[in-house]
Design a protein around this nucleic acid. Structure first.
Lengths: 121, 121
DNA sequence: TAGATACTGAACCATATGGTTCAGTATGTG
DNA sequence: CACATACTGAACCATATGGTTCAGTATCTA
């Protein structure tokens, strides 16, 4: 189970590691768009944009649907929530760790104050 | 300015797009470690682990310091906060967008209820 | 000083990535 | 039907990635 999430995270983070794809997500956050529209906006060939969209879709970060000749892209939420959850979890873990360090520093300071304190830095 | 953040994000997300490196971060979240310790824990050559740490360091996600022959690795926070901030921002943007969609759906439902509703799908 | 330990760097390898062009196919439109 | 539009797929290219091995260098320790 954890492995699946890990695979998701691999794909999601890899998908996010490209400024064009993050731009596409931002764009789709505002409104749906076709491949052509995205290709125009990001000054890229249709084929190139198709690949980006494919990567985002593979990662579950966007959903697409083709009706007639146009494929419409929109944001997919679930994977995104997974990413947010991962980051949040580590954020907290790190905060906790750094709070501990802060406490240690505090304690050191207090100790210094107790014994003869030399000039403050 | 925005470009710099984007470069950071590229490096950060790319660094996070590997299960070993996420594992290293998790490990360092608990306690600092040397390259050797990490290589052992993740069953990898020293050289391989050195590369991973290099990528994480380049991305600003870990800090290292070499004293004597051992290089000690610890978590770096700032970049991580940037990543968290990015995800958070988009999360909100998407939430907002989906709230709007929800409202639209609500409205459609209400409308359907008002006019003669045919069988629910 | 002689090992042993801990890292470092160069070189190599297979595969992935971010793009392109070119040649389609499928769908609308006059 | 003829043409334009919108996408799709294959092939190619340069560069990056995730790993390895091998050969160092620098630092402890007995």
């Amino acid at each position: 189970m954890v492995q699946y999430v890990n695979a998701h995270l691999d794909a999601s983070f890899a998908a996010l590691a490209d400024v064009t794809r993050r731009g596409v997500l931002e764009q789709l956050g505002r409104a749906e768009a076709s491949i052509t529209e995205l290709a125009d906006k990001f000054d890229m060939t249709l084929t190139g944009m198709k690949k980006h969209v494919g990567i985002l879709e593979e990662a579950g970060l966007v959903l697409t649907e083709k009706v007639g000749r146009v494929r419409t892209c929109r944001i997919g939420r679930r994977r995104l929530e997974e990413v947010a959850a991962w980051v949040e979890r580590y954020h907290q873990l790190w905060d906790a760790r750094f709070c501990e360090l802060d406490k240690v520093v505090e304690q050191l300071k207090r100790k210094e104050k107790l014994h003869g304190s030399r000039k403050a830095k």
